[in-house]
Design a protein around this nucleic acid. Structure first.
Lengths: 195, 195
DNA sequence: CTTCTATTTGAACATACGTTCAGATACTGT
DNA sequence: ACAGTATCTGAACGTATGTTCAAATAGAAG
């Protein structure tokens, strides 16, 4: 056999990335074989190499694309002048964006150690950019006496860590609606930094 | 060759667990081979099977031991009557205990998905116990009007997530002392739940 | 209908994996 | 000194891994 009926790179390509995303998220990069990914797509392992030079690149591109989307989606928001409102927007954006992409988020955090050093640096730089956006808000609010924060760097990481926690338990259709979850976290974040 | 000079299970056993702990934390369970663990101990792979029936049990026992120690260490503390002080004690305990065991903590969170379903349930139950201890404090403080919390379950997970964030960046000898870190996080946690 | 290109197969490669076990050596108690 | 036990080696097992590639078929273009 050889080329199969209906095969097209516009279809197979995305299907490979989607299958890899799901499998990496569920079982971890190291525990997933190229043959498993291929099987989920309905193709032989060799065919994957028309779409990625190797397994590492497949992981890297998934993570890179996710971080790019995160930054560009946040960048498209118009930043309120008021730091308080900017923080509120950040909290809402972060929760919503991340809850919409559980697999991507999971991978972007859990599989960092499976990146080659160069790839790791690149992803890390993007994550740093995002953190810096939050820190800028906290600094600004601190300057305007809206916030009372001992250490903005610590506060930045603490806020992001708290918000990321929502991923471990929230499921659509659960006890709380998304709006309620947002409200809950905003209440806590707001009070944790407010003057 | 066969038995080597100075070999003793009291020495080799702990060394195997220590090597496995470090390697699992650094590279991930699935990415670490029994031969790598053996090499770090200075032994052949077959020798490991005098100490563990298989790789899965090795992982499980590391996680189980960690969770048991966490619960027993926390259980030994005398609980203040005042919920405010109890929360303060929890925050200090959590930060200190976790920063002393970065590898164990990392594994206990990252490698959950590599446990068999039965092993997973057991570890999950222990983690739940720990979370319940914090939730009990929050409920109590809520009842005494010390706290103002919309949802104690969400607050419990949010506080733990925030505190866990410290593991991703704190290094001894860094910019902040452990006392300062504790103070920073306590300030934020306290305000996030206070009435 | 023919030619060219896109896409996949299927087999093969060298290497690595977790695990088992008989045999060999070191320690322990008498 | 000897017997019994604890510990490790080294080889082997079947299977799985990431990756490569010539050959084969499907679709697109003229």
């Amino acid at each position: 056999m050889a080329r199969t009926q209906g095969s097209h790179s516009d279809i197979t390509g995305p299907r490979i990335r989607k299958a890899a995303l799901g499998l990496f998220a569920r079982h971890g990069y190291a525990a997933v074989s190229m043959r498993q990914i291929a099987a989920e797509v309905g193709v032989q392992a060799g065919a994957l190499y028309n779409y990625t030079p190797d397994k590492q690149s497949l992981l890297f591109h998934l993570m890179h694309e996710h971080m790019q989307e995160l930054l560009s989606a946040y960048g498209e928001l118009t930043q309120p002048e008021n730091a308080f409102e900017a923080l509120h927007q950040f909290v809402r954006f972060h929760i919503r964006f991340h809850l919409e992409r559980p697999d991507e988020v999971f991978i972007a955090y859990m599989e960092l150690r499976n990146l080659t050093p160069e790839n790791f640096s690149e992803i890390e730089a993007l994550r740093r950019k995002y953190e810096d956006a939050l820190e800028a808000i906290l600094r600004k609010g601190q300057g305007a006496a809206l916030f009372d924060i001992a250490d903005t760097k610590v506060a930045t990481l603490a806020v992001i860590a708290m918000l990321n926690g929502v991923m471990t338990w929230y499921r659509a259709g659960g006890r709380l609606s998304l709006d309620e979850v947002e409200q809950n976290y905003w209440d806590m974040v707001r009070r944790s930094v407010s003057a």
